[in-house]
Simulated scan of single mutants.
Amino acid sequence: GEILVMASSPSYDPDKLVGRDLGNNYMELLRNPRHPLFNRAVMSRYPPGSTFKAVTGLIGLEEGVSRPEDYHPCSGGYTVGRGVKCHTHYSPMNLVQATANSCNAYFCYVFRDILDNRQYGGVAKGGFDMWYDYVRSFGFGRKLESDFWDELAGYVPTKEFYDRRYRSRWNSLTVISLAIGQGELGVTPLQLANLGATIANRGYYYIPHVVKKIAGHDSIDARFYRKNYTKVNPKYFEPIVEGMWEGVNVAGTGGRASVPGLNICGKTGTAQNPNGADHSTFLCFAPRYDPKIVVSVYVEHGGFGGSAAAPIASLLIEQYLTDTIRRPELVRQMKEMTIAYPMYDKRGK
């Protein structure tokens, strides 16, 4: 739960906020259309994209509607209803393979089985509320109660939200995009890092905090010492961990994050974005069997999760675990990476 590094870009020179020009400099930063005063790590509400598939898979296992050995087909995506497209890969896949290769169709099948479970009377009577409770137990849709005063809660839609939007005429196909971390879901990068810690711990997390100790006090607040358990049994986390490991080290979407000997486990996310290029995100931890560090990277308009976010995350893990970087060429590529951001007018629109 200890936050080792937190970065938000673009940033600003703190020296500008002291001295006689403080007021003018502050107003200039406030008017900047890229909002450098906005801490994206704890305040932004991003779609998690495919990193959220781990949550979908875990809920399916706990609810008994999915097993690791179950296979689902993918013919360019999930083809029921309006459908959900997917990139080209072999088919069918089981849970480990679908996690490693980030198959959209697989998790759409699992998601619908979760919501349409007859045990709860289907999606409208109890299936969606059950899904909602699971997601909240992972720390989404609410503040984590970290020691950042400006931390926001993100957003997880409720059944009542969809009842209002669709006048109670909706089903699991209507909200199928939630299966792959799209739709109305909104999370902070801190919440994604917390998801990584939860998976690394096989089912629980400590509330993230930046203060380790306070001089003159015996300890920090008691809430930072408590284990917070999800509603998913720890035994169900191993197939997801295996899939994340294979996705980086064997054959999958996170190959650019691989570092020999570090056993990095990671999940890519390419979050659809109506305003410009997709967002690139990557969630990872290492080593696999004795985790020491979790990294969550979110690059606005960065494209594929494996292209921008994954290499950055792996460099951070390599630096932390080995105290050195053995891939200077990759560092250069990341520093020189060009991202096409949307143009803004003077009103920031």
Rank of each mutant, 00 (worst) to 15 (best):
K159Q: 04
Y166P: 01
S177T: 15
S177W: 06
L152T: 15
T174W: 10
N171K: 13
W149A: 14
G181C: 12
L190G: 05
D150W: 11
N171W: 09
V187N: 06
G183A: 15
P157Q: 06
I180R: 00
S168P: 00
Q182C: 09
D163S: 01
S146G: 02
T188A: 09
Q182G: 09
P157T: 01
V187Q: 04
E184T: 11
W170P: 00
P189V: 10
Y162A: 00
Q191W: 00
R165H: 08
K159N: 03
V187C: 11
L152D: 05
E160L: 12
P157Y: 03
D163H: 04
F148W: 15
D147E: 12
L185G: 11
Y166N: 02
T158M: 02
T188C: 10
V187K: 05
V156K: 07
R167Y: 06
L152K: 15
Y155F: 15
K159S: 11
A153N: 05
L178N: 10
S172Y: 00
L185R: 10
Q182M: 13
G186K: 11
W149C: 08
W149Q: 14
Y162W: 11
L178D: 04
L192F: 06
E160S: 09
R169L: 14
T188G: 11
K159E: 02
L190R: 09
R165N: 02
K159V: 04
S146Q: 06
I176W: 07
A153V: 04
E151P: 06
L185A: 13
N171L: 05
Q182T: 06
L152V: 09
D150L: 14
L192I: 14
L152S: 09
K159L: 06
V156Y: 10
R165L: 15
F148D: 13
R169M: 11
I176A: 02
E160D: 12
A179L: 03
G183R: 08
V187D: 03
Y155H: 13
T174M: 09
F161Y: 15
Q191V: 05
G181H: 13
D147A: 13
I180H: 00
S168H: 12
V175T: 10
I180N: 08
I180W: 00
P157F: 01
E151T: 05
A153S: 15
E160R: 13
R169V: 13
R164H: 04
W149R: 15
